[in-house]
Write a protein that binds this DNA or RNA. Structure first.
Lengths: 226, 226
DNA sequence: TTATTATATTAGGTCATCCTTATAATATCA
DNA sequence: TGATATTATAAGGATGACCTAATATAATAA
């Protein structure tokens, strides 16, 4: 029987999206939420009001949305489920890591807490998903995040890729095609003028990354040894 | 992003339900479908019309519903996903087999074909789910079913439990508590008068099963050696 | 064959989630 | 400060999946 959930997968997507956007900018503009979810701002606004009624978010008109403590807990729960599924899909089922994001996104809304925790046990409580992003704890805490956005590095600076913010499958695929994945060492060789794209050395190759893309790649910056 | 499916999980539940009820009686009365799904007959009727428009079922008023070839393929796809998940939840995650039914039911509607087949590979293509029910093939064929309903056995007749029709978690739990699970040998010791319940010997114990329940237990009947 | 029961349909509603179009309010920049 | 751009809200609709109550029709059993 199709069970009635006390709130639908849509609401979960909103909370997750707000949480993901929140550590780029807080408060999160409603417009960004709408864009990311591919819906109209009117609909997003509507839903955010409903989420506010249920005390999951706080909306400051013309500023943006914040998660409440409860909302953050819920959002982290969703993210936990998604990232655990990503681990399983990649490591268990052998699905290429650049594809698992969307599959996991479907599964995350259909996963009972009992299944989530059994899955975590089974996977031996991984610290991160295949993209390198930390997996929230069972009680809804997000582990502290390290690293700086790749886009902040200046020419000559080096680092190790920590994680890729999985905004979309296209982004992940784009990076994967350029050999950029967690653990790889990179060096910024050049930045084009006028806030232009970065040239990045990965292994023996040099790739050019737009700023938008590089903003979603987090690196552990190496001590500058020039 | 929440993807738009060309039809929702509800429709999948209808098809699955019709398929499950079909080998008890064909055509399947709309009332049975409604009962099983816990919805009104009006709603069921409505949805069945929609499914008929899409050529998944054929409805004969006052008789019941049949699946079309296409509908059966779809239904078997859903059942395949569910039963594969049941295998994983039981054998992989160690969730007790009497609990996995509902969890798998949630997951089945959120599972991409790519994931389904990767899962099947991972599980090494099991023939049956933990309840003993056959898993349809990737192209939507349901393997032939053996066995007779336990309720058909007469006192003195013996057999081996092949599978339990997973109608509900309660049914499975009820049977599990009485030691009735696939592979067990049983003997009918008595049938109470007036179409009453059966007494079943399992191991050293004797349990009494209502006819409704016993109708969902399929057995491989042993040659009568009295 | 008729009365009873089972099944189907019609009409009118609810709820969540989305939409477009139009207007109002605020922010920001020149 | 005033003009422009951004953000919010209001109004009206659409859709899918459900509901109840009332009525119509077919099946079945006395």
């Amino acid at each position: 029987m199709v069970q009635k959930r006390f709130f639908g997968s849509s609401a979960e997507m909103y909370l997750k999206t707000i949480a993901e956007l929140a550590h780029e900018r807080e408060p999160v503009p409603v417009t960004s939420v709408a864009d990311r979810l591919g819906i109209s701002t009117v609909s997003a606004s509507e839903m955010i009001h409903r989420l506010e009624d249920r005390k999951f978010v706080k909306h400051r008109p013309y500023k943006g949305v914040y998660l409440t403590a409860e909302g953050r807990r819920k959002a982290n729960g969703v993210i936990r489920r998604q990232r655990l599924w990503e681990c399983f899909l990649t490591n268990g089922l052998g699905i290429p890591w650049e594809h698992v994001h969307d599959f996991a996104c479907q599964l995350e809304h259909a996963t009972d807490p009992v299944v989530t925790e059994a899955l975590a046990d089974y996977l031996e409580h991984p610290a991160t998903c295949p993209h390198g992003n930390p997996i929230p704890t069972a009680d809804g805490e997000m582990p502290a995040l390290e690293g700086v956005p790749l886009v902040n590095l200046m020419p000559g600076e080096k680092g190790v890729i920590l994680r890729i913010h999985p905004v979309s499958e296209e982004l992940v695929k784009h990076l994967d095609e350029r050999g950029i994945s967690p653990g790889r060492e990179i060096e910024v060789t050049e930045i084009a003028p006028f806030n232009g794209p970065q040239s990045i050395e990965v292994g023996d190759e040099i790739h050019v990354l737009g700023r938008e893309v590089a903003a979603h790649v987090m690196v552990q910056q190496a001590a500058d040894t020039r």
